[in-house]
Write a protein that binds this DNA or RNA. Structure first.
Length: 942
DNA sequence: GCAAGGTC
């Protein structure tokens, strides 16, 4: 069997179709992985790297004394499968193969991925021939050629890739650990460092520094207003910017009539049609439409997977000869763009435009399928339309502008004006994303005089350089060789999720800046794009076999060791610098009570709140939703009223939740509960707020005297307020318990969310579980519960209530559980039933039952039932069992009627005992009679 | 828990 290994599923599928020719290809899923078979050949697609490099065992503990961050430099490195299903299928197929062909992409990473497959195959099949197919495009001719001239794997090329893997891992992991530990940050707050991310972060941070230290320079612009054929014209002084104010003033002074046309220049300007899309230019164009880089990439991948556009990860800006452009146009004719397609066909340029990079892996991004807006939805359609229009634009003629430049003289001062008119629309007709700004100038002739209507001197300032937008950053990264087409957008995403940068355009956070500054001081190498360039040069040497992988990695190791010499010597200083800034990032603003800083605080990474840095002297705090709703971060926006920074909760894969001003939100969300206090008035609420009391617990935790003084109210009113607040707090507690109960017991349905049920229950006056237990059926139906649910819910609620009452009476949990299982539900049952019966049913010793019964009844204000000792019960039991016709089952029934021994049986009223026990009255009578007979015998004997 | 690179 011939096994062919491709880099990805889609390649495997396409290669199979091309090699199979007229043969039928069988697509089968094996262990969740697609395979393609024909004749004696099987193809399987990898998922890029299916193994990853990692340190050998023993390096997982970051805080290990023996294995500090530096030890990672010399730690052993192993490859671990990350795609287990693919790895095991590959090995299963490899065992049966008598030829394996590696058909991964034709680049360094592709060779490395191929070598990884090679090693996995070798591990299970020592002898099989493993060859390499190299093709620069997946087209029938290329593929057939490649498979007719199979070669060996290029181990030098793969080794170059491995050196990158190892160097990235050891630098990234060791520095990440070092700086995280130094700044005492763990879990979700680690500070990451890497060959690509750190220079990128440094660019953003450096730009911010430039902006901050920018000193604006004043300059002046001189313009002149005139008019020609009724059209107002604004002429510019040809000097441009006047840096010297006096020069500008002098030039203005010299500007006098007559204003004469000295030169008229007309020309034609070619406005070239845009080049085909590669990943970067697509992301840039999408950025102008409001897409973030990561989002544009996500949508593009989606469109690709569904067959609407070609592979979105490409560096190629030249359509390959194998791409049938007419066919693409044919597909687009069936879409909403048919009008544009028809226009393009009529005006088509002889050759499509071409960009600078013609790489061989994938064609430029172009449409591959027809779509409708309804099919795609707004966002995907927007990107699809962009790709379609760009494709059409690359086949359209250039646009042409008529340009005009008119020069003037005014008293010796030179002025000028330029204009442009779009003569031929060309590609702009089908690609309307950049506006064509026309400026028309009426025809002028040399020597002609125009009036001076005004001379204006405008003062301006030089502007700082702009912050990076995501797409501008991606362009710059590409220019510097940082990252790849597939990873650049992810790197930006990483910087955002580490909270190193925020916003678009991108601004560094304080932590981001602190990390960059520390690294620049002590580990400069990792913050510079040069590291990548050096690495690439070394990789080139490995490819050419002038150096070995181990030599390059060894050199890098030595360098990293010397970086650590510096880092370790300054560990405390580095940590302190970063931590100082972190505090600032957590600070929200002044405490309304004491004026010290309020800070975002997290407890055990689960709950979070805003507390006063003056704690414990000042206990002011604002509660925040739990971390599961998102981690609280500070925004730059400040509440005008409270001078507090706005708060946002951020969570992976979820929209950010903006809380806004935490105090405004705190006040608003607690106002409703404060109004539950019966004697609450608007005026009182205002006074509470004025003295920084915003919640019901704030009132409960104050003394009446204190309240009276702070709110200027009478002491009786204050006492009542505290009392009523306590009641409300109790109500809230019971309601929240009820809510929890409902969440656990009632499955939510459409139009019946837990919140809605709880709301309706509160409206119906059901405030706690006990109330639910005794709620009327029709009321619960109103709430949205079915009859069955109502039954079950009420029973459960009653059980909970009973259990609670017994526990409150002091009964131990174990016994309560036994009683409840035996059907003894509450104090009433203890009052009504004989302890002997309860003991028999529950298995609790009778004396214990008596004790429990007394406690339960007295706490519920009920009469205490009779008591009985274990000894007497046993004696009575013997007496009763001795009677004819009485066995264990009857015994329990008798206990239920309070009959525990011969004496109590003899004294019983047969009718009543029968009703209570369920034993026929006749049988009871006969039992009583037999006692009498026994009695007689007894008497005779004595 | 760490990187960057494939791919989904």
């Amino acid at each position: 069997m011939h096994l062919i290994v491709a880099e990805k599923n889609i390649s495997a599928r396409r290669i199979a179709a091309m090699l199979a020719g007229n043969n039928h290809v069988t697509n089968k899923k094996e262990g969740g992985v697609d395979t393609y078979a024909f004749d004696d050949t099987v193809l399987v697609g990898l998922k890029g790297h299916v193994v990853e490099v990692d340190f050998v065992e023993g390096y997982t503990n970051w805080r290990s004394e023996e294995r500090p961050p530096r030890s990672l430099i010399d730690a052993g490195i192993v490859k671990r499968p990350t795609e287990k299903r693919i790895v095991s299928l590959l090995q299963k197929l490899a065992k049966k193969a008598d030829l394996v062909t590696i058909a991964t992409d034709f680049d360094t990473e592709g060779e490395l991925i191929g070598k990884e497959a090679y090693e996995l195959v070798r591990a299970v099949n020592k002898d099989v021939r493993i060859l390499r197919a190299r093709f620069s495009a997946i087209t029938p001719q290329e593929i057939k050629r490649a498979f007719s001239e199979l070669t060996e794997l290029d181990f030098a090329l793969a080794a170059a890739g491995e050196s990158r893997q190892i160097i990235d891992l050891m630098w990234g992991a060791s520095l990440t650990r070092f700086i995280s530990i130094a700044a005492r940050r763990g879990g979700a707050n680690i500070l990451s460092v890497g060959r690509v991310q750190s220079p990128t972060l440094a660019m953003i941070a450096d730009r911010e520094k430039e902006i901050e230290s920018f000193v604006p320079q004043k300059y002046w612009m001189l313009t002149l207003d005139t008019k020609k054929d009724g059209t107002p014209l604004e002429l510019r002084h040809t000097h441009g910017r006047f840096v010297d104010h006096d020069d500008a003033l002098a030039a203005r002074k010299r500007t006098t009539e007559p204003l004469t046309v000295t030169e008229v220049k007309e020309g034609v300007k070619n406005d070239r049609a845009p080049t085909p899309f590669d990943t970067t230019s697509l992301l840039v164009a999408a950025g102008r439409l409001g897409f973030s880089a990561a989002n544009a990439m996500r949508v593009a991948e989606d469109l690709y997977m569904n067959g609407f556009i070609s592979y979105p990860r490409t560096d190629n800006t030249v359509y390959p000869a194998s791409l049938n452009l007419d066919e693409v146009l044919g597909v687009l004719k069936t879409t909403a763009f048919s009008g544009d397609v028809a226009w393009v066909e009529r005006h088509r340029r002889p050759e499509p435009t071409r960009g600078k990079k013609s790489s061989t892996d994938h064609p430029p991004i172009h449409p591959t399928g027809a779509a409708t807006p309804a099919q795609l939805g707004e966002e995907r359609w927007k990107l699809y339309e962009l790709v379609v229009r760009r494709f059409l634009a690359t086949l359209s003629p250039d646009a042409r502008w008529l340009t005009m430049k008119v020069n003037f003289d005014a008293g010796g001062e030179p002025y000028t004006v330029t204009g442009g008119q779009l003569k031929e629309e060309g590609w702009r007709r089908v690609y309307p994303y950049s506006e064509a700004a026309e400026r028309l100038i009426p025809a002028c002739t040399v020597g002609e005089r125009l009036p001076i209507l005004g001379v204006n001197l405008e003062e301006k300032e030089t502007q700082p350089p702009p912050r990076y937008t995501q797409s501008r950053l991606i362009q710059t990264m590409e220019e510097l060789g940082l990252g790849t087409k597939s990873t650049r957008h992810e790197v930006i995403g990483k910087l955002v999720s580490r909270r190193y940068v925020q916003g678009n355009p991108l601004r560094p956070t304080l932590v981001g800046r602190a990390v960059v500054e520390s690294l620049e001081k002590h580990a400069d190498t990792i913050t510079r794009p040069d590291m990548t360039r050096t690495l690439e040069a070394s990789m080139q040497q490995i490819k050419e076999s002038t150096r070995t992988r181990d030599d390059v990695v060894g050199e890098s190791r030595a360098m990293l060791h010397s970086v650590f010499d510096d880092l370790e010597a300054h560990e405390e200083q580095i940590g302190a610098e970063i931590m100082d800034r972190t505090v600032e990032e957590r600070t929200v603003g002044p405490c309304p009570v004491c004026g010290k800083d309020l800070q975002i605080r997290q407890v055990h990474g689960a709950s979070q709140f805003i507390g006063c840095s003056g704690y414990p002297e000042c206990t002011f705090n604002i509660s925040l939703p739990g971390v599961q709703w998102g981690k609280a971060i500070r925004l730059d926006q400040v509440c005008e009223q409270h001078r507090l920074n706005h708060i946002r909760l951020i969570r992976k894969g979820a929209r950010p939740w903006d809380i806004g001003c935490p105090l405004c939100s705190h006040i608003e969300s607690n106002a409703a509960t404060l109004r539950l206090i019966p004697h609450m008035t608007d005026a009182l609420l205002q006074r509470l707020h004025a003295s920084h009391m915003y919640t019901v617990p704030d009132i409960v935790h104050s003394s009446a005297a204190d309240l009276a003084a702070r709110l200027s109210i009478g002491s009786e009113e204050a006492e009542r307020l505290v009392q009523e607040a306590n009641d409300v707090l109790d109500l809230l507690r019971r309601r929240s318990e009820l809510k929890k109960f409902i969440r656990a017991e009632v499955p939510p349905r459409r139009g019946r969310s837990h919140a809605k049920i709880a709301q309706k229950m509160a409206a119906a006056g059901i405030d706690d579980i006990a109330a639910l237990g005794s709620a009327r059926v029709d009321v619960l139906k109103e709430v949205g519960l079915s009859d069955e649910e109502t039954q079950g819910l009420r029973a459960k609620a009653q059980a909970i209530r009973s259990e609670r009452r017994l526990r409150e009476a002091g009964l131990p949990a174990v016994s309560v559980k036994k009683y409840l299982e035996a059907g003894i539900a509450g104090p009433e049952d203890f009052a009504a039933l004989h302890p002997a019966y309860i003991s028999a049913k529950s298995g609790v010793r009778v004396e214990t039952v008596c004790k429990h019964a007394e406690a339960a009844c007295s706490s519920a204000g009920l009469d205490t039932p009779p008591k009985i000792t274990q000894k007497r019960l046993e004696k009575g039991r013997e007496e009763l069992l001795a009677l004819p016709g009485i066995g264990e089952p009857t015994l329990e029934k008798l206990y239920r009627a309070g009959i525990v021994d011969a004496a109590s049986l003899a004294a019983a009223d047969p009718e009543r005992a029968s009703a209570a026990s369920g034993i026929p009255a006749a049988k009871i009578r006969s039992c009583i009679a037999s006692i009498s007979a026994e009695d007689k015998k007894e008497r005779v004997r004595t």
